[in-house]
Structure formats: structure tokens, C-alpha cells
């Protein structure tokens, strides 16, 4: 499914997710959009936080005229729903779709949405995902060229993030095997996992690889591109920054997925002040440490490189 869509693509898609709410996904999405646009790169922000859409308010837009609601309910074209922001080269598709429950989005609508996202006339499309690991959220995450996860340094956020990444990976494995014609095999084995002595996703993947060498080859090839860009937000100490390195390590050693730890963003009261002022953060608070962290991580995502750790290399 995704393969066919990806061939007709215009710009580079970044999706920002991570499981728990309140970690700063929307805030950071707004900042990444601002950064790219200010580099003169035409950028579209898409608010896919279904039920909790508020990306527009980070740009001081009160009640947008258009939103994804028109796409789902009136069959509007996505490109007709673009709302301009006060920043050159940056527009927005708002997600004020309180009338739509995520569950009611049909499969065909989802495909159409993905196809139109890919066709948006922009160099970068940044998708702000809502909290949670709903299938629609995971599928949207998986169409991205760069899958970005935002995390705050606290236990529940870490737990939810593991859950989110595991589910994304599981979904990817299923999609991949489906594309190769092994649609039922994963579900079949998973449903009978106790008979196979399988307790979790990792063991399922290992089992499949071990048992069916051709599946192993397919998964190795396809999952080689499964790479997560990790951002740690709201850090208050050097210890918090190092936490990101630990999480990277655990995810790599446990799930075998590649993690690029691209940045840590300092906690700063200027953020909520800016949100209250309903002004793009990077326009007014460019000199804060927080803004500098965001600029650095934006560059890191662009160039696919990692954060410089305190005290030298990671």
C-alpha cells in the first residue's frame, strides 16, 4: 500500500509522534515548520491530532476557515485547505475535526489522504500526530520519510513511547509481509503465540526470521530503513540529556531498530509564555537556549546526524 503511494511523491515527509500527550509534539512541529520555512524551503504543516487539533493556535490563527473536516466530510481536495501563516513559505492544514472520530475514517479515505499528502506542492510536509497508538496514527507515522518521536524525561512518557515504537514496528512488519503476500502468517502465529512460546513482538519477529529464512531476508531489507529520530524535550539537566542516549541504546539492543538521537531541548518558561501569546515561538524567542536547541536538532534531522553529547562522543 505505502510503496505504491510513495512513488508519486513531491516533498519530504516528516511525521512527529511519540505516544504520550503533553510532551511537546505540536510545539516542536510548529518550530520545525518555522525553521524550514525560514530557510526558504516551502513547507506545509498538517495537523493530524484528531480530536485535539491545536497546531493553528501556535501561529495565532483563531478559527481557521478550512480544516481536514472538509476533506473527510465534503470531499475537498487537501491542497484547497491550505491556510497561510504569517511566516513566508509556511502554510498549514488545520485539523479542527472534532466532528470526526478517528475510528470512523474509512480505509479508502485514509489512502486518499495519504496520496494527497504526498502530492502537496511543498519541499517539506510536517505531520503533527496526536497522542496514542491508534492504527490511523501508526499508519500516518509509517508513510513518513523521517519518523520523529518526541519524549519528555519521565516514566510514563518513556513507557508510552516504547509502546508507540513497538506498535509502529509491528504494523510495519505486518504491512511489509502483506506486500509480499504473507498477509495471514503474522496474525496466525500471533494468535497462537502461546503454542509457539512467543511472548512479545520481538520474539515474534525473531521466530519468523528463524523459522522462515526468506521472511528474515525480507524483514532485514525492509526494516533497514526503519529509523527513528528521537527528540528529548523539556530537559532540565545533563542527566536528562544522557537519558536519551540510554533510551537509544535500549531500543537498539532490544528491538534492533536504528535510533538517531537528534536533540535535547531545554525546558524553558518562554515556551508557555509564547503559547499564551499565540505567536510563533522562534520569531520571538530566538535567543533562548531552548530555541538554539531546536535549531540544532532541526539541522541534525536534515543532515541525519546525532546530538553532541555532553562530555564528548556518545
Amino acid at each position: 500500500m505505502t510503496q505504491a503511494i510513495k512513488t508519486a511523491k513531491e516533498g519530504e515527509i516528516w511525521a512527529v509522534g511519540g505516544g504520550k500527550g503533553g510532551t511537546g509534539k505540536t510545539f516542536l512541529s510548529s518550530c520545525l515548520g518555522t525553521l524550514l520555512a525560514r530557510k526558504g524551503r516551502p513547507t506545509v504543516l498538517v495537523d493530524m491530532d484528531i480530536g485535539g487539533a491545536n497546531l493553528h493556535s501556535f501561529f495565532g490563527i483563531e478559527r481557521p476557515h478550512h480544516s481536514l473536516t472538509s476533506f473527510f466530510e465534503m470531499g475537498s481536495q487537501l491542497s484547497d485547505l491550505l491556510v497561510r501563516t504569517e511566516i513566508d513559505h509556511l502554510s498549514l492544514i488545520t485539523g479542527d475535526i472534532h466532528s470526526i472520530a478517528s475510528d470512523t475514517i474509512k480505509f479508502s479515505q485514509k489512502l486518499k489522504l495519504f496520496r494527497q499528502i504526498m502530492k502537496l506542492n511543498a519541499q517539506f510536509v510536517i505531520i503533527d500526530l496526536g497522542a496514542g497508538s491508534h492504527l490511523n496514527t501508526l499508519d500516518t507515522f509509517l508513510i513518513a520519510d523521517k519518523m520523529i518521536v518526541v519524549l519528555a524525561p519521565e516514566v510514563i512518557a518513556i513507557e508510552n513511547m516504547y509502546h508507540f515504537i513497538k506498535n509502529s514496528l509491528f504494523r510495519k512488519v505486518k504491512q511489509t509481509l502483506k506486500e509480499y503476500g504473507f498477509k495471514e502468517i503474522v496474525q496466525h502465529i500471533w494468535d497462537r503465540r502461546q503454542n509457539y512460546g512467543i511472548r512479545n513482538l520481538k520474539e515474534l519477529i525473531d521466530y519468523l526470521k528463524d523459522r522462515f529464512s526468506y521472511i528474515g531476508t525480507i524483514l532485514d531489507n525492509e526494516l533497514a530503513n526503519f529509523r527513528i529520530y528521537l527528540i528529548l524535550n523539556q530537559v532540565r539537566s545533563k542527566q536528562d540529556v544522557l537519558l536519551g542516549a540510554s533510551i537509544k541504546s535500549v531500543l537498539q539492543k532490544y528491538l534492533g531498530v536504528e535510533i538517531l538521537y537528534v536533540g535535547a531541548v531545554e525546558y524553558n518558561d518562554a515556551v508557555w509564555r509564547s503559547v499564551r501569546e499565540r505567536k510563533p515561538f522562534l520569531l520571538n524567542y530566538l535567543s533562548t537556549g531552548c530555541a538554539k536547541d531546536i535549531e540544532t536538532l532541526g539541522e541534525n534531522i536534515l543532515k541525519e546526524r546525532e546530538i553532541m553529547m555532553p562530555g564528548g562522543s556518545m
Binding site: V155, I158, E159, Y162, R199, N200, K202, L243, S246, I247, V250, Y254
Partner: peptide
């Protein structure tokens, strides 16, 4: 058993 490992304790 840090907070990084704790959520995966059963699996890891």
C-alpha cells in the same frame, strides 16, 4: 533497573 529499562522489564 533504571526508568529506561523498567517499562520493558517483562520483555527484556
Amino acid at each position: 533497573h533504571s526508568i529506561v529499562l523498567a517499562p520493558l522489564e517483562e520483555e527484556f
